[in-house]
Simulated scan of single mutants.
Amino acid sequence: MEAIATVLIADDDPSLRRTTRIILETNGYRVIEAGDGDEALRLLGNARPDVALVDVVMPTACGYEVLGGVRDNWDGAPPILMMTGYASVDAVVELMREGAFDCLAKPFGERDLLDRIERALGLESPLEDGESPSPEKLSRREIEVLLLMREGMTNRDIAARMRLGQRTLDEYVKRLCKKLGVSNRTGAVAWSYRHTMVDLDSATAFPDGAQVEVEAGSEG
């Protein structure tokens, strides 16, 4: 049977590469491996995988150097998903600015891995309850929360800035993550860097012209 796509796994941990390979091959993907950054760059140039999983910390060339090498040397490079054990919002923001398609926080589960790869390949990735992500239905408040998350603010700081109770703010975060089809706030920040975000004074939120859903009783 023909493979769905070819995935490069670049990580200096043989155990992680082996486990990830098993998951991907079981689900129909062809896998190639690199144990360091230099080998990852070589395979990205020669083997031309459809998507790459690249660890941030590796020998010879780190994940940032791999991103830079791809950005500076190749047109039409595959989407690169960065793997990191330090998935703070600040780290995700920096990686997305450097050209990463998305970030995976270690340790990651099978479903999270497959969802991110499917998204990178442009395949359908429905939510568990069967609903599709609906970014066009973010309210103005949810967009404001997302923009503040991009600035690296904690939930507590955002609640204070927006004059909301902590429980109310947590509910906003939960709802916007569900609408975007991500599992947590770092995933939401990563999503925001793959899409044009809204100017809060604008009538539309996204480049396809989808209208922002304004909550009843919310401030303009």
Rank of each mutant, 00 (worst) to 15 (best):
P59S: 10
T60A: 08
S132T: 13
D12F: 00
Y193V: 05
G152W: 07
G109H: 09
G35W: 00
G209R: 03
M82E: 09
A205M: 08
A120M: 07
G109M: 07
A120H: 02
F206I: 15
V93G: 04
G45S: 15
D208G: 09
L113N: 07
P78S: 07
D129T: 05
C177Q: 03
P207N: 04
G37S: 12
F206G: 14
D112G: 09
E171R: 01
I80E: 11
D199A: 14
W74N: 02
A205C: 13
L123S: 00
W74R: 15
D208Y: 02
R111F: 04
E2P: 13
S202I: 08
L81M: 04
L44N: 03
L81G: 03
E142P: 08
H195R: 11
R116Y: 01
E33W: 14
P78H: 06
V198Y: 02
V189G: 12
G152P: 01
T196R: 05
P133K: 05
K174C: 00
S202V: 03
E151I: 07
I117D: 11
G69Q: 13
S139L: 08
R141P: 02
F108Q: 00
A5Q: 06
L16E: 11
V92T: 12
D208I: 08
F206Q: 09
R71C: 05
D55N: 12
G76D: 13
T60N: 11
L24Y: 02
G209S: 13
V7E: 06
R17F: 06
H195Q: 11
S192Y: 03
V66H: 03
D75E: 15
A159H: 01
A203N: 09
T196W: 06
Q166H: 08
A100H: 06
M83S: 11
A100S: 02
K178W: 02
D102I: 14
D157A: 13
T196A: 02
S202H: 12
L180F: 02
K178G: 04
K179W: 10
A105P: 05
V145D: 03
A160P: 06
G165W: 03
G181I: 00
Y172Q: 14
D157R: 13
D11H: 07
D55I: 15
T154Y: 02
D90C: 07
D75H: 15
V51M: 10
E25N: 00
A190D: 05
D157E: 15
D50W: 08
I4S: 14
V189S: 10
T196N: 00
V31Q: 14
V145P: 03
T60H: 15
E94H: 08
T168E: 01
D36N: 15
A160N: 11
G45T: 10
E151K: 02
E2A: 15
L16Y: 06
V145W: 01
L169H: 04
W191Y: 13
N73A: 07
A205T: 04
A188L: 08
L104R: 04
A105V: 07
E39F: 11
L16Q: 13
H195M: 09
A216W: 06
M197P: 02
F206W: 08
T168Q: 07
D112H: 13
R194N: 07
A190W: 00
E39D: 15
M197T: 14
V189Q: 11
A105I: 03
T6R: 14
I4Y: 12
R163V: 00
A100R: 06
G109K: 12
T26F: 03
L24K: 05
D75F: 15
D38Y: 06
V93L: 13
